[in-house]
Simulated assay, not measured.
Amino acid sequence: MDLFGSSSFKALEIGLQGAQIRQNAISQNIANVDTPNYKAKTVSFKHLLNEEVNKGSFEATRTNDKHFQFSSVAKGPIVQSNQNTMYNHNQNNVDIDREMAELAKNQIYYNALISRISGRFNSLQTVIRGGR
């Protein structure tokens, strides 16, 4: 019996890894807010969560052809730099207000994942103790 290899644990783990990569990108953007010619980076990793969910026994029923299918297109987190914008006189495109908002959003996302994992471990601990 594989307690920690279930699709939900794997999806939570992938989510945490993605949040870490996003945290690193946001931190780099904030650190380079005044660096000439620096281009802000964004991270997309939700396709990884979809992939993990699709690998497991999770299936969705489409009741209408217009509903989205669960699918994945890429094999890893996508880190992109936006080369087409410029917010500052030094060719830098880091918007510190946006980055701080993204930082807060990522922290909330991370805390939600940690809370869910903690709940899973608490449930296992209750089972091990015999319901006490």
Results as ranks from 00 to 15, higher is better:
residue 86 M to H: 02
residue 77 P to W: 00
residue 44 S to L: 07
residue 51 E to W: 03
residue 4 F to P: 14
residue 116 R to L: 05
residue 121 F to S: 02
residue 127 V to A: 13
residue 44 S to W: 02
residue 91 Q to D: 11
residue 80 Q to F: 05
residue 77 P to M: 00
residue 41 K to M: 10
residue 15 G to Y: 08
residue 42 T to L: 00
residue 119 G to C: 01
residue 49 L to F: 10
residue 40 A to G: 08
residue 69 Q to E: 06
residue 71 S to R: 11
residue 108 I to Q: 13
residue 27 S to K: 04
residue 119 G to Y: 02
residue 26 I to R: 07
residue 23 Q to N: 14
residue 35 T to G: 10
residue 56 G to A: 07
residue 102 E to H: 06
residue 125 Q to H: 11
residue 67 H to F: 06
residue 71 S to E: 11
residue 57 S to A: 13
residue 30 I to Y: 07
residue 37 N to S: 11
residue 104 A to G: 09
residue 33 V to C: 06
residue 76 G to N: 12
residue 50 N to C: 01
residue 108 I to V: 14
residue 29 N to A: 01
residue 126 T to Y: 12
residue 51 E to A: 14
residue 25 A to E: 06
residue 105 K to M: 09
residue 52 E to S: 14
residue 81 S to G: 02
residue 83 Q to D: 06
residue 12 L to V: 07
residue 48 L to N: 05
residue 129 R to D: 06
residue 85 T to C: 04
residue 100 M to W: 10
residue 45 F to K: 08
residue 76 G to W: 00
residue 82 N to G: 07
residue 72 S to F: 14
residue 34 D to Q: 15
residue 102 E to N: 12
residue 102 E to K: 12
residue 60 A to D: 01
residue 92 N to R: 09
residue 110 Y to N: 13
residue 22 R to M: 03
residue 49 L to Y: 07
residue 56 G to I: 01
residue 114 I to M: 08
residue 129 R to Q: 13
residue 84 N to S: 11
residue 104 A to V: 15
residue 129 R to G: 02
residue 103 L to H: 14
residue 11 A to E: 08
residue 40 A to Q: 14
residue 132 R to C: 02
residue 26 I to F: 02
residue 42 T to H: 01
residue 26 I to K: 08
residue 64 N to D: 15
residue 28 Q to P: 01
residue 33 V to K: 14
residue 100 M to D: 08
residue 102 E to R: 12
residue 79 V to N: 02
residue 122 N to R: 14
residue 96 I to D: 02
residue 4 F to D: 13
residue 124 L to P: 09
residue 20 Q to C: 00
residue 59 E to G: 04
residue 99 E to T: 04
residue 36 P to G: 00
residue 128 I to T: 07
residue 78 I to E: 06
residue 104 A to D: 06
residue 112 A to Q: 11
residue 75 K to I: 00
residue 39 K to H: 07
residue 82 N to R: 08
residue 50 N to L: 10
residue 121 F to L: 15
residue 122 N to V: 03
residue 25 A to W: 12
residue 127 V to G: 03
residue 47 H to R: 07
residue 89 H to R: 13
residue 20 Q to V: 10
residue 105 K to G: 05
residue 25 A to M: 09
residue 131 G to F: 04
residue 123 S to I: 02
residue 23 Q to P: 09
residue 87 Y to A: 00
residue 47 H to S: 15
residue 38 Y to A: 01
residue 116 R to H: 06
residue 92 N to E: 08
residue 60 A to S: 10
residue 91 Q to I: 00
residue 126 T to F: 09
residue 103 L to Y: 14
residue 52 E to F: 10
residue 70 F to D: 14
residue 92 N to K: 09
residue 78 I to K: 08
residue 100 M to S: 09
residue 113 L to C: 02
residue 105 K to F: 02
residue 52 E to A: 13
residue 70 F to T: 12
residue 84 N to V: 04
residue 127 V to T: 09
